[in-house]
């Protein structure tokens, strides 16, 4: 419950019921110091380091993994024009975009059903939404591999319905990757939407019906706009991790379904081409930030935390 509310609040404007009122000039800084120091050293500094790394070039005649700082901005151009990189990057956004829409299509009605039809079982149903988290995310993804395997139930049904060739399958494929992404981030979509819907005053919906709005119009004009903060939070909490994910593509896809995360992992950990991996990380992060800022501006959510 409170986790749901918290994730919902992440990106939602808080009503300032109680203005900060305490005095004490240095107290807040003492409270902030340890945490912010941690974040500065292990989040901000690494990002700067990563940016530095992205401008490096191999030491002439050096070993694999030996680089020197040459402020070689052309790394960005080289990487962005290389189809082994820009295609997975593009694919990442397509896959995660589709997965986000699917998760919204599944998660919104689910959250709505729990919030408005759940009655006294609402909290228990919410626990069921987060229950999959208790089983390792990798194991669940592996389970999907078994479920979607040629001898598994999904393919059997699809073959019976002639939706795939008698010898065809659904794993590994783009479909399986997108399905896995949708699955893995569905709770992140559902919980914030639930938190928003739960706060919608039921009498407002009654009032819209009283004022001649049919149920669907009432939903479109009242319930949906009031739940938008949750939708914004949910789509971001789904889209961002999905765009950077590589586990689903690695476990459920073919090489032709590689996403940018797989490329980053491979260039960083296997090829030890740190500058290229750093460039990719930076491009991924920058693209996401631009998309997110644009999206938030459009949806009119201002305060983020």
């Amino acid at each position: 419950m409170s986790i749901a509310a918290a994730i919902g609040d992440t990106l939602e404007e808080q009503p300032h019921k109680n203005k900060p009122q305490k005095q004490g000039r240095f107290t807040p800084y003492w409270l902030l110091l340890p945490g912010l120091l941690w974040l500065t050293i292990f989040f901000i500094v690494p990002l700067v380091t990563l940016f530095g790394t992205s401008l490096m070039t191999p030491v002439p005649g050096g070993d694999v993994g030996e680089f020197e700082q040459t402020f070689h901005f052309a790394n960005y151009v080289d990487t962005l024009t290389d189809s082994t990189y820009y295609i997975p990057l593009f694919r990442s956004f397509i896959y995660s975009g589709i997965a986000t829409l699917l998760a919204l299509a599944i998660g919104y009605p689910l959250a709505y059903a729990i919030a408005f039809k759940g009655g006294r079982y609402r909290n228990i149903l919410l626990v069921l939404v987060i229950a999959p988290f208790f089983v390792s995310f990798i194991l669940r993804t592996v389970a999907w591999r078994q479920i979607l395997a040629d001898e598994g139930p999904v393919v059997a049904i699809l073959r019976y319905l002639s939706l795939v060739e008698p010898t065809g399958g659904v794993y590994p494929s783009a479909f399986a990757v997108i399905m896995g992404l949708t699955y893995n981030f569905l709770p992140f979509m559902t919980l914030p939407i639930y938190a928003s819907l739960e706060r919608v005053d039921h009498r407002l919906i009654e009032a819209s019906g009283d004022l001649y709005a049919k149920p669907f119009t009432g939903f479109r004009k009242v319930t949906w706009p009031l739940s938008l903060p949750g939708v914004v939070a949910g789509t971001l909490l789904t889209f961002i991790p999905a765009a950077g994910d590589y586990v689903n593509a690695a476990l459920l896809g073919r090489p032709s379904n590689t996403m940018i995360g797989n490329r980053i992992e491979y260039t960083f950990l296997s090829v030890n081409d740190y500058p290229t991996a750093a460039v990719l990380s930076f491009i991924l992060m920058a693209t996401i930030l631009v998309l997110v800022l644009f999206y938030i501006r459009r949806m009119g959510t201002e305060e983020l935390v």
């Binding site: 992440t10 912010l36 974040l39 500065t40 292990f42 989040f43 901000i44 500094v45 690494p46 990002l47 380091t49 990563l50 530095g52 790394t53 971001l236 961002i240 991790p241 765009a243 950077g244 994910d245 590589y246 940018i260 995360g261 980053i264 992992e265 960083f268 740190y274 991996a277 750093a278 990380s281 930076f282 991924l284 992060m285 996401i288 930030l289 997110v292 305060e303 983020l304 935390v305």
Partner: peptide, 25 residues
């Protein structure tokens, strides 16, 4: 607020790779 929000808005690969870049350096 921004410092708190950014790590949540950053994909894990980026968090992971940037820290690794620091540790390697």
């Amino acid at each position: 607020n921004l410092t708190i929000f950014l790590p949540m808005a950053t994909p894990e690969v980026v968090l992971g790779s940037s820290l690794l870049a620091l540790f390697l350096n």
